[in-house]
């Protein structure tokens, strides 16, 4: 298009009056806006800050935090070691060792002997949760995950199951089945050891 094309629409900036050219009305308007914010935040409820350790942020229902391994009605791990989550994981942070299920477990052929997630490598995308055909792995609303070493942040099956025990009442399983209380008689489950994170959460 040529610059003298008649179909070109030419816009002219609005002409400022002498008063407007001094920029005083705009400056006063700006002072009014910041002044309102200062007064509201200082004496009113204008402040948006959440004072964290005292006030805990409640994430939304679809927040993707630390993983948990769900248990079924009999308190067994739901995972059937199909490897779909490990395959779907874009950063390969899930490591599963499957084994043949005991004879008494009639509903499946395999179960996971070991289930390890590297929480430091994980990008919390939630693909594992979507891939799982039996709703065994889910992301919880834990967001303040800390640790003192890299090893501490590699969660094994015990830890992941203990996350489930901690969050099952607050966040029911998405498929709606809740395991009965005191169902950890199976030798596969030991006492929860989540490190300082979960202990603090229990206190809250």
């Amino acid at each position: 298009m040529r610059s003298d094309d008649p179909s070109l629409k030419r816009l002219k900036p609005p002409k400022l009056t002498l008063f407007e050219q001094s920029y005083l009305p705009q400056i006063l308007g700006g002072l009014f806006v910041t002044g309102r914010h200062i007064v509201n935040a200082a004496v009113g409820t204008g402040s948006l800050t959440m004072e964290y350790p005292e006030v805990q942020h409640q994430p939304s229902a679809n927040y993707r935090g630390v993983h948990r391994l769900n248990k079924d009605e009999q308190g067994r791990v739901k995972c059937v070691a199909c490897m779909l989550c490990a395959t779907a994981c874009p950063v390969h942070c899930i490591d599963i060792v499957g084994a043949t299920a005991p004879e008494s477990w009639t509903d499946r052929e395999k179960y996971c002997q070991s289930f390890v997630i590297d929480e430091l490598r994980c990008i919390y995308c939630g693909m594992c949760e979507e891939a799982c055909p039996v709703d065994a792995i889910e992301l919880t609303s834990f967001y303040d995950l800390t640790g003192l070493s890299r090893e501490e942040m590699i969660f094994d099956k015990t830890k992941l199951l203990s996350v489930y025990d901690l969050t099952k009442t607050a966040e029911p399983m998405k498929s709606g089945i809740v395991a009965p209380e005191s169902s950890h008689t199976n030798e596969l489950y030991t006492t929860p050891t989540m490190g300082p994170v979960i202990e603090r959460q229990q206190l809250v």
Binding site: T34, H37, I38, N40, A41, A42, S47, T49
Partner: peptide
């Protein structure tokens, strides 16, 4: 620092 915070709706 306080005024800076208040102007930005912080504490």
């Amino acid at each position: 620092r306080k005024i800076a915070a208040f102007a930005q709706d912080r504490i």
